[in-house]
Design a protein around this nucleic acid. Sequence first.
RNA 1: GGCGACGUAGCCAAGCGGUUAAGGCGGGGGUCUGCAAAACCCCUAUGCAGCGGUUCGAAUCCGCUCGUCGCCUCCA
Length: 459
Amino acid sequence: MRLTNTLSGQKEELVPRGDSVTLYVCGVTPYDDVHVGHAMSYIIFDALRRYLEHRGHKVRHVQNFTDIDDKMIARAAQRGVPVADLARHYIAAYFQDMDSLNIQRAHLYPLATEEVPHILELIGRLVQKGYAYQTPDGVYFRVQRSPEYGKLSHRTLEGMMAGARVKVDEAKEHPMDFALWKAAKPGEPSWESPWGPGRPGWHIECSAMATKYLGAPLDIHGGGPDLIFPHHENEIAQSEAVGAAPFARCWVHHGMLQISGEKMSKSLGNMVNVKELRRRFSADALRLFVLSSHYRSPLTFSDEGLVASERGAERLRHAAQPDGPAGFSRLDSASYEARFHEAMDDDLNTPQALAALFDLAREINARRAAGEPVDLGVGVLRALGSVLGMTFAPASAPEGDHRPDVSGFIALLVTTRTELRAAKQFAAADGIRDRLAELGVVLEDGPQGTSWKLKGIAE
RNA sequence: GGCGACGUAGCCAAGCGGUUAAGGCGGGGGUCUGCAAAACCCCUAUGCAGCGGUUCGAAUCCGCUCGUCGCCUCCA
């Protein structure tokens, strides 16, 4: 398949070298609940991984947790809890939320705090080779030693300095030099090192973990677009300085999630967290919302968009119901599969892949309505949908929905209503239906009798 | 100030020089139904921000104008 490589700005054919594809995705700093921006990011990389696996590649997927940094320390202090406890809590929350979105877990989730020896070794090599120097504040990377610095973000040191929004630190040789090791201030968690007690800088952990667990060059290194600079740029500088060049063959970045035209950020206070969203929308609706635009385009979050996606998800769910007779069908699912693959092969074009799925759903519905067996088509729809991470699970049982199971009572009312209808007492029958609708139970009369489902999710 | 992205139907969104401009949501009409819902069928952009240019041919390439947004600082 072809993927856009941020490094070249071009679509490039992904050619696996060994028996597997290595995928490193930058993870979160676990100091707060995950928000829709994270959801968007990890849904996209989940779809990428699932597709690679669908195409027969073995994927080795590593994603880190930055469990020690300024934000962690500040939040822990604010709450009066140890940093490690804060990390443990939000890492658990991260998994809960991502699981609820049907995002496959990475094979390994290294923690920065557990990689300190390896990080120190890497810093030592950088110092030894003249790429790093010590100041009273810690150890810094010497960006001017990297002639290619800026190659990922396509900018130059001069260009960045022109912006002049860089804080001046007298002790640094160059304003763009960045910390590899931060000297501990009193009361901060710290580790011993040849440069005094301190903790790792942000960027060094990813270089250390990625090379340790996957080895350079990585086939794919991904992350949010806001990580291109400085995080990923610095990862490249550090890693390639010690000979791990190229650090990654293909850099994959997606568009930014925005909220009503603005960037969503902690400072603007317009965060929407995943837990809250999952109470109102199904995992499939979130998937559809994210994947119905191309991953490299910015996406604007909106409630109306989610509502529309929930309807769309419901449409696919309906078509994917494995009912009806099995048997031969004239439905040509191969052509839909071909469209799906062609779209996904071309830089993960999920909107077009979804279009193929919706067209398949339409044909399934039409043939099912005509009494034809559609089990083969349904099988293909479910298989391809699951490549995108769709669950097809009924929307009626959202995560965190603690409504008691009332199906017995509803069944009783449905039976009663059926009897009323048989007796042509339509006013009473409609009354039951209306009252149930008010309570969030939708009845549908079909040839095989009356079925019901809970509405509730996207109300 | 530097770098970059985008502007396609009421809304979201594909399209990467050449058949009738995907798909979803919404809306309109119809079939089915006691009615409704769901489902199905049909319709919903002679036009792709505007103006020039290149080309036999442009939503797609180039230039300019207008508009929106992002990165350059912690952030997926």
